[in-house]
Design a protein around this nucleic acid. Structure first.
Length: 485
RNA sequence: GGCACCAUGGCGGAGUGGCCACGCACCGGAUUGCAAAUCCGAUUACCCCGGUUCGAUUCCGGGUGGUGCCUCCA
């Protein structure tokens, strides 16, 4: 019941922003596949757009692990824990920056864990990699790619011929953005030059041969990527907005310092919009992951984020969340039904799923296929019996086919990081023991009233359930069960 | 102004040179004491104009419309 895409499914292809084409992915070393994703600057709560970037990277991470083996993939997602905004927040609150950064880094990791994002292999912190940054800056200074000016160190973009290749910008075009007279601009040779090192601010600084100070934003990622993964990594991920200037500048620094490409594949996810408008602080429509998690299960949010292809804009809405919850409810229903009779299948456990991933991560199409699989299995569940071992070469009975279809969809969900809970927990989880017994009491109240044909009492029980935040479901056998509404 | 991306039914959102996405909502029916859950069924689409082609929503060109980036925002 699983559709098979028609395209070549043998090799993973990814859209490479650097070449603007889909390319076959070939790692430098299949025994050590490396990917880097720009993590958060931890001065506040992360929003749902941050979550999209992290979930996209997580799916890619899972797919790579599946292809090359769990131990063969190294994924680094940094924590930017020194930044002007952080320093400003710390100064304002009169606390060390670590008070701010440790709190929000912890919340970020908790938020992503709730979205079923696997922990990255490495989570480097900027403040723990200052040495690497100084090292790269010194190399750039020595080789004349950078220059010092009034306590700052700048990268000289005129020395790097390929500057602008990723974003499609040219130096001439960028010159138009020059805002003459604004602070750093006056110290720079070229308007597009960017800062590698800045003087100490509010007591935040590190000693360096070129003066005590703090790193510029871009150099942090270059250093952390190199020190955790190497001079050339396989895949660098991030949101499209980071293409310029952040990734452009990372490329310039790293290429010039190391004499080799920083990354072979650049994967950028598109934006998440609030309806048709951008999510932005100035519009006041920023949705925080932490807030969403108060109302929705992390898997609901994850599925909602995966409903659009990563290179398409995704319009976020309450309806999208509702829809995702309904999908998962019905999928968990199937998982619950087949839970004790999943086939012992020695074939490729990802049958079908993989081919979708292979062509630039066609996740929404896979989700559609998963939905059809569950739908098929559910509709044919009457045929289902705890059955004899399957003999695939002799053909399957209807019961076996539906059971196998459920199994395949569940496996595909596992690959996507969905349907990870026990169905019982999904439908009833989160309730305390007291609540559980209270809910059970409401359900049996309705069952008894229905048995006695006391419809008024039966309706009252249903109202009571709704008020308590649960839904009652009458079963064919006369019993009534409850679930979270 | 420069660069990049996009344009599919009420909404979300895939994909394809010729046949069905799919989900949600809506409508009809089954089931139900009435509902819920579940099942069956129906309806709605590919921005405009050219071109290539036997045939284009899908390829090419132009137009229109929308979005993002252009110095620290995923």
């Amino acid at each position: 019941m699983t559709d098979t895409p028609t395209q070549d499914t043998q090799k993973l292809t990814l859209y490479n922003s650097l070449t603007r084409r889909k390319e076959t992915f070939t790692p430098i070393n299949p025994k050590r596949v490396t990917m880097y994703n720009c993590g958060p600057t931890v001065y506040s709560y992360a929003h749902i757009g941050n979550a999209r970037a992290a979930v996209v990277a997580d799916v890619l991470f899972r797919v790579l692990r599946h292809i090359y083996g769990e131990d063969a993939v190294e994924y680094a997602r940094n924590i930017t824990d020194v930044d002007d905004k952080i320093i400003a927040a710390a100064t304002e609150q009169g606390v060390p920056i670590s008070d701010i950064t440790e709190k929000y880094a912890r919340i970020y990791n908790e938020n992503l864990a709730a979205l079923n994002c696997l922990p990255p292999t490495h989570q480097p912190k900027a403040t723990e990699n200052i040495g690497g940054m100084i090292d790269i800056i010194q190399t750039l200074l020595k080789d004349d790619y950078a220059y010092a000016s009034e306590g700052h160190v700048f990268f000289d973009v005129s020395k790097y011929d390929d500057y602008g290749k990723l974003s499609g910008n040219t130096l001439d075009a960028l010159r138009g953005g020059d805002r003459v007279g604004e602070g750093e601009v006056a110290r720079k040779k070229n308007a597009a030059d960017f800062v590698l090192w800045k003087p100490e601010l509010d007591g935040v600084g590190w000693d360096a041969p070129f003066g005590r100070g703090r790193p510029g934003w871009h150099i942090e990622c270059s250093a952390m990527a190199r020190d955790t993964l190497g001079e050339t990594i396989d895949i660098h991920c991030g949101g499209v907005d980071l293409k310029f200037p952040h990734h452009e500048n990372e490329i310039a620094q790293s290429n010039c310092a190391h004499g080799k490409p920083m990354a072979n594949y650049w994967v950028h996810n598109e934006f998440l919009n609030m309806g048709s408008t951008k999510m932005s602080k100035s519009l006041g429509n920023v949705t925080l992951i932490d807030d969403l998690l108060k109302d929705w299960d992390g898997e609901v949010i994850r599925l909602a984020l995966l409903k659009a292809h990563y290179r398409s804009e995704l319009s976020w809405s309450e309806d999208l969340l509702k829809e995702s919850k309904e999908n998962l409810d019905s999928w968990y229903r199937v998982k619950d039904f087949f839970a004790y009779d999943l086939p012992d299948w020695s074939g490729d456990s990802s049958r079908g799923a993989f081919s979708y991933f292979m062509s630039d991560l066609q996740v929404p199409t896979l989700i559609s296929s998963i939905g059809r699989g569950f739908s098929y299995a559910w509709k044919h569940r009457e045929d289902h019996t705890p059955s004899e071992p399957m003999e695939y070469d002799k053909g399957l009975t209807g019961a076996q086919e539906s059971s196998l279809t459920a199994y395949i969809s569940i496996t595909q969900c596992n690959l996507l990081g969905l349907l990870q809970k026990d169905p019982e927990e999904w439908f009833k989880g989160g309730a305390s023991d007291d609540e559980t017994s209270a809910f059970d009491a409401i359900a049996s109240k309705r069952a008894e009233a229905r048995k006695a044909k006391d419809w008024a009492a039966a309706d009252a029980a249903r109202d009571e359930a709704a008020a308590a935040g649960i839904a009652l479901e009458d079963q064919p056998d006369g019993t009534t069960v409850w679930r979270k509404a």
